[in-house]
């Protein structure tokens, strides 16, 4: 049933496209993290208008399917005078915007777990709001939410399969192309699934390990 030589032939191509998958999901995580910090600050702000704005962001970018968001961005960016946006840029934009909404919600839990007194101490010493955010709040929130953030990375790697619709030759799109030429649909897609497993299962294990360690330390 398995045509091994043909499958092995496709491996280098898949491995190369894996880099595109990793690149776009890592970029999505990084930029999404910055967006997440900002949106989370809005959500926790004292001013109701800012809070509403943060809430609206999360509602929109969590509510609309990522596939639809990606298509929208792909067709929308040229309309607002950015005609030469590469598929990769559109894909990373889409992943980052969506990841920002999820990361904002993850971080909110972490931010709320930091005792208020620590922030009062910082204000008394004259630290600026930005310094308090960057030096006191974010490092602690990240430590508390690291397992959830790793989980978000897994979600992003999986979600990046959808950027194939904007024509980017990442892992899934490459497998599609290979299957279309060798007609080994089942086998090629099984190899494709294996690629995702090889990345995501170790990540999931690391996340689980961290979570257990965190629980023990807090207990």
């Amino acid at each position: 049933m398995f045509d091994w030589p043909t499958l092995v032939e496709s491996l280098p191509l898949l491995a190369k496209s894996l880099l595109v998958t990793l690149e776009s999901s890592l970029a999505g995580l990084g930029i999404g993290f910055v967006i997440g910090v900002l949106v989370c600050s809005l959500r926790l702000s004292l001013h109701p208008l800012w809070r509403r704005l943060g809430g609206a962001y999360i509602f929109v970018f969590r509510g609309i399917p990522l596939l639809v968001q990606l298509l929208f961005i792909y067709y929308f960016l040229p309309r607002i005078g950015l005609p030469n946006v590469s598929p990769l840029a559109a894909a990373i934009t889409g992943l980052s915007l969506a990841a920002g909404a999820y990361i904002a919600e993850i971080l909110r839990g972490g931010f709320l777990a930091i005792p208020e007194g620590q922030l009062e101490a910082a204000h008394m010493l004259g630290l600026s709001p930005l310094d308090v955010l960057v030096r006191i709040q974010v490092p602690q929130a990240v430590r508390l939410t690291l397992p959830a953030l790793i989980n978000e990375m897994i979600l992003l790697i999986k979600a990046s399969s959808l950027i194939s619709v904007v024509g980017l030759a990442e892992l899934t799109r490459t497998a599609q192309n290979i299957a279309a030429s060798n007609y080994l649909f089942l086998q090629t897609y099984l190899v494709l699934a294996l690629f995702y497993c090889l990345i995501n299962i170790p990540l999931a294990c690391a996340g689980g390990l961290l979570e257990r360690r965190l629980k023990r330390r807090l207990a």
Partner: peptide, 23 residues
């Protein structure tokens, strides 16, 4: 559970819809 959670929904659909006929 781990296998399903580690793979994208789209890939699962491909396996089922395009790979299904092979078995």
């Amino acid at each position: 559970i781990e296998l399903i959670r580690a793979t994208p929904f789209l890939v699962q659909l491909f396996l089922l819809y395009y790979g299904g006929p092979s078995f």
